[in-house]
């Protein structure tokens, strides 16, 4: 079992004749994904790695019964590619493209929602359900079939975490890269909901980073709705405020969106936060051991203990940030961003 993509996924590749598109189409096919077609306007009738290419998504869907699409086209065309996929009735769309303007994403998002489609990304590595299906660019060599669901805003950092899990024999149901942009189609909560509902997923790893408040919202959601054990990691504790750290969404604005704030929010609802991706499997094991005891305990242990060695450090950040969280509050957070260090004085004549 898995979420969002599986053996029934019939995938088309938008931008299949491009450098990235053709390379990854072949990689996905080699992994076992049913890559049924590709789309590049003007290249219809040709083939890439044995995969038929069509001029339009509509035609590709009609001829191949595709139900999913992955997008590798440049940022200036990517939005149009999303509209085209939604319009052709595709319900699972994964956009790998990095560099799409946030304004464009704000406009396309309601269109995707209205049509009941799911968009993963943009600026993401895609998804992989080990042994079943791979959509995107995650290396198939690092995953292993199992029962941990992984969701992350990052790329290589996710690989690092997945690899650590795999090395410890903890396989995965599905690994999802939701993307590092400000406006993304699928967020942590969407994935947590899916993992909670998926019977084969027994535990969840959530990898966040600075910027925005998705992790805080996810923490609140987990407290209410998720009974499966969750281990988290948050990148960017040493990131300076006001600087974009690679990802468009990874920026501390007006003092909010800090790693410490997110770690505090997660710890508060009993989610242990690893200090290194390599510590994730260890924390997961401890958590699973505990959850094997009375079942209700899983839900209620809001003060799950962390390993003693790390205790002091975490405590410090938690304590320090708690006040900030209270002070700022959700509403003010947006404002703070807007008001970033602006001040002008004026005098009368």
């Amino acid at each position: 079992m898995s979420v969002f993509i599986n053996t029934k996924t019939r995938l088309i590749v938008q931008g299949i004749t491009g450098r990235d598109g053709s390379f990854h189409a072949e990689q996905m096919k080699a992994y076992g994904t049913k890559v049924v077609g590709g789309v590049t306007p003007g290249k219809g009738g040709t083939k890439v790695a044995g995969i038929p290419v069509f001029n339009t998504v509509e035609e590709a869907v009609a001829k191949t019964r595709a139900n999913a699409s992955v997008i590798y086209v440049p940022p200036s065309f990517a939005i149009d590619a999303i509209y085209e996929a939604v319009n052709a009735g595709i319900k699972t769309i994964v956009c790998i493209t990095e560099g799409i303007p946030a304004n464009d994403m704000m406009k396309v998002y309601p269109y995707v929602k209205e049509h009941g489609a799911r968009l993963v990304g943009p600026n993401c590595p895609g998804l992989i359900s080990p042994g079943e299906c791979k959509v995107g660019i995650m290396p198939g060599t690092i995953v292993k079939k199992g029962n941990v669901g992984v969701v992350s805003r990052s790329g290589t950092l996710t690989y690092e975490a997945i690899w650590a899990l795999t090395m410890e024999g903890m396989g995965q149901t599905t690994c999802i890269g939701i993307g590092g942009d400000q406006v993304i189609g699928t967020n942590f909560i969407d994935c947590l909901e899916a993992f909670q509902a998926d019977r084969s997923t027994k535990a969840i790893v959530m990898i966040g980073e600075i910027g925005g408040s998705d992790e805080e919202e996810a923490a609140a959601y987990i407290k209410k709705n998720v009974t499966k054990p969750v281990v988290a990691f948050i990148a960017g504790q040493t990131a300076p405020p006001g600087k974009r750290m690679g990802h468009a969404g990874a920026i501390i604005s007006g003092g909010t969106g800090t790693a410490a704030e997110k770690i505090a929010a997660l710890n508060k609802v009993g989610i242990p936060v690893a200090f290194s991706p390599t510590e994730i499997p260890q924390l997961m094991k401890e958590l699973l051991k505990k959850s094997k005891k009375p079942k209700a305990a899983v839900k209620k242990t809001t003060t799950r203990k962390k390993p003693a060695a790390k205790k002091t450090v975490r405590k410090k950040t938690t304590a320090k940030k708690k006040t900030t969280v209270k002070k700022i509050g959700n509403k003010a957070r947006t404002l703070k961003k807007a008001a970033r260090k602006k001040k002008t004085t004026t005098r009368r004549k």
């Binding site: 990052s154 790329g155 290589t156 950092l157 990148a235 960017g236 040493t238 990874a250 290194s276």
Partner: peptide
């Protein structure tokens, strides 16, 4: 480092192990 998330995680570990990125 390759990748923004991993780059941040690496910096965080530098700090944790007693260095400064």
């Amino acid at each position: 480092v390759n990748g923004a998330g991993l780059a941040m995680a690496t910096m965080d570990l530098v700090k944790r192990y007693g260095g400064e990125p």
